[in-house]
Amino acid sequence: MKARHKKLMLIGIALAGIGIIAALVLNAFQSNLVFFFSPTQVAQGEAPTGRAFRIGGLVEAGSVKRQPDGINVKFVVTDTAKSIPVVYQGILPDLFKEGKGVVAEGKLGSDGLFTASQVLAKHDENYMPPEAAHALEQAQKAQETIVK
């Protein structure tokens, strides 16, 4: 390959790189900076209507119900102020648990039911052995009883 051709190719790569960066940034600013909406934001009408979006919050304790057909699963996403019922068909991630974080992508029906096409688990930034987590839980419970 001639030096001139090599140079042109490299300039091309550099330009393509900058172009990809610009496209990614624009794309991100347009729609993806808000990765998900909380149920409160949805209730206030901040979520887009008529197209798919993501909701995020906690899986309400006791709300996960496998449907009799064995395919669909229903649960409620809550931010403790508002909540949205979700129906989903597919494999749930390993960290999907009641009381834990979740992000669901899909469409909100006129009946208020959110039909999810993808469910992702959102975990927190805590890392500890199970015994420590257990002890922490016990301590929290003990404190709650004292407060009561």
Binding site: G17, I18, L24, V25, A28, N32, P93, D94, L95, A121
Partner: peptide, 28 residues
């Protein structure tokens, strides 16, 4: 295995990908 997706376009992952393209762009 943890979230349920290899990749999502959230702000953290997207900006880190932009960093990779910046490195490549500078070297080019």
């Amino acid at each position: 295995p943890m979230w349920g997706a290899w990749w999502v376009w959230d702000a953290r992952l997207t900006s880190e990908l932009i960093l990779l393209f910046l490195y490549i762009g500078i070297m080019a």
